[in-house]
Simulated scan of single mutants.
Amino acid sequence: MAPIRSPKTDRSDPEHPIECQEAMEDAFLDMVNRGVRAGWDVEQVISAVIELADTQMVLRQEDARLERTLRRMRKDPTLAEMGIIAFFGIVGIALAATFILSIFM
């Protein structure tokens, strides 16, 4: 497996993303070649890598959004209480509806 170089530039440097791409390129090509050697078409391998990367990005964004929400709830317990009340309110309505329907059926 191809080694990946450590960054030499700071995150704020405009060249940092390009340096990352260059550092990852050999490992990426190695992974694509391994997929092709395993019997996959090169287009399928690259498409799979794109989809996997996209999914990881979406998951990271969702994790960050959830973390922000939890941080706000820790700062303001009223928000957490409202979330719990809303959840149990919905569950309560569903249970009451089920009970009422069972009486009339």
Rank of each mutant, 00 (worst) to 15 (best):
P3E: 02
I4C: 00
R5H: 03
S6I: 08
P7S: 10
P7G: 00
K8Q: 10
D10P: 02
D10S: 14
R11P: 11
R11C: 02
S12C: 14
D13K: 07
D13F: 04
D13M: 01
E15N: 14
E15M: 12
H16I: 07
H16R: 14
H16F: 15
I18W: 13
I18D: 15
E19V: 00
E19R: 05
E19S: 02
E22F: 01
E25D: 07
E25N: 03
D26N: 01
A27M: 02
A27K: 07
A27H: 03
F28C: 02
F28H: 01
L29A: 00
N33E: 11
N33Y: 02
R34Q: 13
R34I: 11
V36F: 01
V36S: 01
R37H: 13
G39Q: 08
D41R: 13
D41K: 06
E43H: 11
Q44Y: 05
V45L: 05
S47D: 15
S47G: 14
V49G: 06
I50W: 02
I50M: 00
E51A: 12
E51M: 13
A53G: 07
A53Q: 15
D54P: 05
V58P: 00
V58Y: 08
V58K: 12
L59G: 02
R60A: 08
Q61N: 10
E62I: 09
E62P: 04
A64Q: 12
A64K: 10
R65C: 10
R65D: 14
L66V: 13
R68N: 08
R68Q: 12
L70I: 11
R71H: 08
R71S: 07
M73H: 03
R74N: 08
K75H: 08
D76A: 12
P77F: 09
T78Y: 00
L79F: 08
L79Q: 03
A80L: 14
E81P: 04
M82T: 12
M82C: 12
M82Y: 10
M82Q: 15
M82S: 13
G83P: 05
I84R: 14
I84Y: 06
I85Y: 12
A86M: 10
F87H: 13
F87W: 06
F88R: 14
G89R: 11
I90F: 05
I90T: 04
V91A: 09
G92E: 09
I93P: 06
I93Y: 04
I93Q: 08
A96I: 03
A97N: 07
T98A: 15
F99T: 07
F99G: 00
L101H: 01
L101I: 06
F104R: 11
F104K: 04
M105K: 06
M105C: 07
